[in-house]
């Protein structure tokens, strides 16, 4: 039986490797640094997670690509392209890549430009298609907080791909009594949902940090989903994906959990702690911060995104959160269900 590869030793990558391993798969996990690979193999522990004995770490991408035809790249969006450039020479069209990165790749410097063109914004699956010869690409998304996965709590996820064999192989590798894997052909929608939910989690953290209760949060989540659908439609996704695990499912989890990095960024902001301080503390990337800016730079496409607009003012223009909230609540409201025709 061929092995399965996981690329990236972040919390989600490690949790995924363990889920594959408990499913009787031999797993190779790629660590960028040799000493981390060695430590992981030796101590069977990393970032507070116990590593299953069927998981072997390596920092040799060529070896991993040769041994594993099914690969799960799980690295932050900022590092994704450089990873692909290293991995690409070892890939063939037989490989299947299912990524778990909830971010966008931008081909322009977002700190320099005033506007982004659609062609400058790529999801990770689009980046894989652009930078490798692999065609069979998928993504994994859903309410999958890494720490809960690591504790083997019951959870579900969605694997999306235009190819049914990608979904089938992903399911075969991951489906277990504690982890239900659903399938979808709406990859664009699933990717967009899993990316946009990050900034909605930031807003949710803010509300919690300000002491607001469940009514406020429910309003945020519902209108947040509407905003995700508006954006998705403007970028060629159907609304279907937003109703599933990667949409409403992931929103429910990340908007209610202090385990979510994005939620913590928002929560700390409400408590007066700057974004950079929080990121330094958690030592991981909060993709939502970048997404807020990207959404702002794409506004010429005419979608409705009041939440992202308000967050932009708070995060990038140093608006007071209360002022941001007042701005949001002062906007005219439309029909309840205005995002599905």
């Amino acid at each position: 039986m061929s092995k399965v590869g996981v690329i990236g030793t972040g919390n989600f990558g490690l949790a995924l490797a363990n889920l594959l391993a408990i499913n009787k798969k031999q797993v190779l996990i790629f660590a960028r640094r040799e000493e981390i690979a060695e430590k992981l193999n030796k101590t069977r522990e990393h970032k507070g997670q116990i590593i299953n004995e069927r998981v072997t770490a390596s920092n040799d991408l060529e070896f991993i690509a040769k041994e594993c035809k099914l690969l799960f790249p799980i690295v932050p969006s900022n590092n994704f392209e450089s990873l692909l450039n290293q991995l690409s020479p070892f890939l063939t069209p037989e490989h299947i890549l299912i990524h778990g990165t909830k971010g966008l790749h931008i081909t322009a410097d977002i700190n320099e430009v005033k506007h982004l063109d659609k062609s400058q914004v790529l999801t990770m699956s689009e980046l894989i298609l652009k930078n490798t010869c692999v065609e069979r690409v998928g993504c994994i998304a859903g309410p999958n907080l890494a720490k809960e996965l690591a504790a083997e709590e019951i959870a579900g996820t969605v694997i999306a791909s235009r190819y049914n064999d990608v979904i089938k192989e992903g399911k075969k590798a991951l489906n277990s009594p504690v982890f239900n894997v659903y399938g979808s052909n709406e990859i664009k929608g699933v990717e967009i949902a899993s990316i946009l939910k990050n900034y909605i989690a930031i807003a949710s953290g803010m509300l919690e940090g300000m002491g607001y209760g469940d009514n406020s949060k429910a309003l945020l989540i519902t209108r947040g989903m509407a905003e995700m659908v508006f954006f998705g439609k403007a970028f060629g996704a159907s609304e279907k994906a937003f109703m599933g695990l990667a949409g409403i499912g992931d929103l429910m989890a990340t908007c209610n959990s202090k385990l979510s990095r994005n939620f913590r960024v928002g929560y700390n902001l409400a408590k007066g702690i700057k974004v950079d301080e929080t990121l330094n503390e958690i030592k991981e990337v909060a993709e939502g911060i970048k997404t807020i800016k990207v959404v702002k730079l794409l506004k010429s496409y005419g979608f409705n995104s009041p939440l992202a607009d308000a967050l932009y003012k708070i995060v990038y223009e140093d608006w007071d959160i209360t002022k941001g909230l007042e701005y949001l609540m002062s906007l005219p409201v439309s029909d309840d269900i205005d995002f599905i025709k």
Partner: peptide, 8 residues
């Protein structure tokens, strides 16, 4: 392939 390598 589109990235310039030979593929089987």
């Amino acid at each position: 392939s589109k990235i310039g390598n030979k593929v089987d």
